[in-house]
Design a protein around this nucleic acid. Structure first.
Length: 544
RNA sequence: GGCCCCGUCGUCUAGAGGCCUAGGACACGGCCCUUUCAAGGCCGCGACACGGGUUCGAAUCCCGUCGGGGUCACCA
């Protein structure tokens, strides 16, 4: 049996998004499924000099590491931008054999040709064009740069797609001579992928459906270069609930929408908004009026406070978004795996090991899937419930590393463990943060929610405040400060006054947290400690 | 528009001619538990896109219609 070698080959133009993560996951699962033999390799496709950034590469690797999708060529990561000489050598041979040639049309000329074809309701097919020596001399004189095109042998191409489970065919009239080297000297995607996949010994290529048609170009190139043909599997698209493609544009769309609303509602000028950021007003203006233009994430981050948009309201689409919002990687991965794949037999929740064991490419579906965040939330809840406390302490540390402004950063591991056990039942790590950060805020900085104060303390002629005063006395004289003792003392008070626990717990909650929600109240008081609890109660009472 | 792919509850899916009165999960509705928020327990609602075939028998096979997605770059 031959070895399985898969790869994930992102282009570093931004953070990893969930679609890419799912492609990486399937490739990883396929390799791991074969045991120690299989290899999962990573390659950085940075041939687009204008759009690729080093920052994006770093982020991509970090996201992959966070997911636990480790690649087997860690010490020899492939960057296409560093392999220009290798590509050029192969292209030179192709030209020598007349399998490739120089082409001189400018992008404008090509666009005109396409427009013409479209007008005539014809498909535009580029085939080799003849240039006279005089023409070429003139082009060179003008300083034109040529591209190299592949002289595609005109014939019918077909390949077997293991997900569609059938032969996908392209008729010969659709063949065209595509660019393999750009005017800037870099190879195009089509050329670099074919060369690198062959060189890296890739046996199985899993990629998005948008590449299905590209495959014909790739196999034509493989034939000319005498490369073996890998197995192809094209994954369906992940969509938003409304059926549109889920992508990075969604975030930009949301920010733009919010910006327009803000301007409309507050009559703020674009200049005024821009002045709160490092963005130029002209840039902002261009972005607002042109729905095709996009801001990058760091620009979004600056703009959001200026237009009153909370980051939590952004659609989660990047792996990093889910990390920051308190999802566990194993939950995201388990959920993603089920978008297009199922092990059958009604099995859904799986450990990574189980997924590796059960994975098979034949069971991947060819139908598009919608990304339903509520189901992901449910998966996260289950994983959180099943995880041992130590695992969650680590997860919480990771969460805090990307949420540095949280007061919980001040907690010790031991405290985190206590909080985790106190608050079992949370759905995200962010919920734990939200629910327990009041512990770490200075006593005199608790902000009281007006509605909560009204309802639980002031209503019915300060009924709650009266209860709170009684409790102040009781708690002050508590023999020790454990949840059990405090509960016992408060319960006796309830019995004596014939009050339900709710009538008593809520006023304390408001005094101690500023709001109506907290972990179980007596455990919370024990955690907070006698001093802070009493300080908060008296401060609360004094503000009434 | 041409070409390619797809079409089972709202969503993710099980289902490879009779095990289907179509199963599970999430969501939703109801009830229960409860000091808050969660979590949890029980019950319920809910789908084979449509129309033709083939067959004793079709969610499963074939054809058409409709609907959705992808793609038509010197971006990957």
């Amino acid at each position: 049996m031959s070895t399985v070698v898969t790869r994930f080959a992102p282009s570093p133009t931004g953070y990893l998004h969930v679609g890419g993560a799912r492609t990486a996951l399937f490739s990883w699962l396929l390799a791991r499924h074969t045991g120690g033999e299989g290899k999962f390799l990573l390659r950085i496709e940075d041939t687009d000099l204008a759009r690729s950034t080093e920052q994006a590469t770093i982020q991509l690797l970090e996201d992959l590491r966070w997911l636990g999708l480790h690649w087997d060529n860690a010490d020899s990561l492939v960057y296409q931008s560093k392999r220009q000489d290798i590509y050029n050598e192969i292209i030179k041979n192709l030209i020598a054999k007349n399998h490739a040639y120089e082409a001189w049309e400018t992008q404008e000329e090509l666009a005109a040709l396409r427009a013409q074809a479209e007008k005539a309701k014809r498909a535009f097919i580029y085939r080799r064009r003849k240039y006279s020596p005089e023409q070429i001399a003139k082009f060179q004189e003008e300083g034109r740069k040529s591209v190299i095109r592949f002289a595609t042998p005109v014939k019918q191409y077909s390949f077997f797609d293991v997900i569609a489970e059938k032969e996908i065919v392209q008729p010969e009239e659709e063949c065209q001579d595509f660019v393999i080297r750009k005017t800037d000297g870099m190879p195009t995607y089509h050329f670099a992928v074919v060369v690198d996949d062959a060189e890296m010994g890739i046996t199985h290529i899993l990629r998005g459906q948008e590449h299905t048609k590209n495959t014909f170009l790739h196999i034509a190139l493989q034939e000319a270069l005498n490369y073996p043909r890998p197995t192809y599997a094209h994954l369906s698209t992940i969509q938003n609930l409304d059926g549109t493609k889920m992508g990075k544009r969604d975030r930009d769309k949301k920010v733009r929408e919010a910006a327009h609303n803000f301007i409309k509602n507050t009559k703020t000028s674009i200049e005024a908004i821009a002045s709160k950021t490092t963005l130029a007003a002209s840039r902002l203006e261009e972005w607002l009026s042109n729905s095709k233009s996009q801001l990058d994430p760091s620009e979004h981050d600056q703009l959001m406070p200026a237009i009153g948009l909370n980051p939590k309201d952004l659609p989660e689409i990047l792996v990093h978004d889910f990390r920051k919002n308190g999802y566990l990687p194993e939950a995201l991965l388990n959920f993603l795996a089920l978008l297009g794949w199922s092990p059958g037999e009604n099995k859904e929740l799986m450990s990574m090991d189980e997924m590796v064991q059960l994975f098979s490419i034949e069971r991947i579906s060819n139908a598009n899937a919608k990304f339903d965040r509520t189901k992901l939330l449910a998966f996260n809840t289950e994983k959180l419930k099943a995880a041992p406390t130590e695992r969650l302490v680590m997860a919480m540390r990771d969460f805090l590393s990307v949420n540095e402004d949280s007061p919980l950063s001040r907690a010790t591991d031991e405290q985190l463990a206590t909080l985790i056990d106190m608050k079992r039942g949370i759905r995200t790590l962010r919920e734990l943060d939200d629910a327990t950060r009041f512990f770490f805020i200075p006593d005199d900085q608790i902000a009281y929610d007006a509605a909560a104060v009204e309802k639980n303390l002031k209503k019915n002629n300060n009924e709650g405040a009266g209860v709170l005063r009684d409790l102040q006395t009781i708690l002050t004289s508590a023999p020790d400060w454990t949840a059990a003792t405090l509960e016992h003392a408060v319960q006796s008070y309830c019995t004596e006054k014939n009050l339900g626990l709710g009538k008593v717990a809520q006023p304390i909650r408001v005094a101690v947290t500023g709001s109506t929600v907290s972990p179980p109240i007596f455990q919370s008081l024990e955690f907070l400690g006698r001093e802070s609890t009493l300080a908060r109660i008296s401060r609360c009472l004094s503000t009434l």
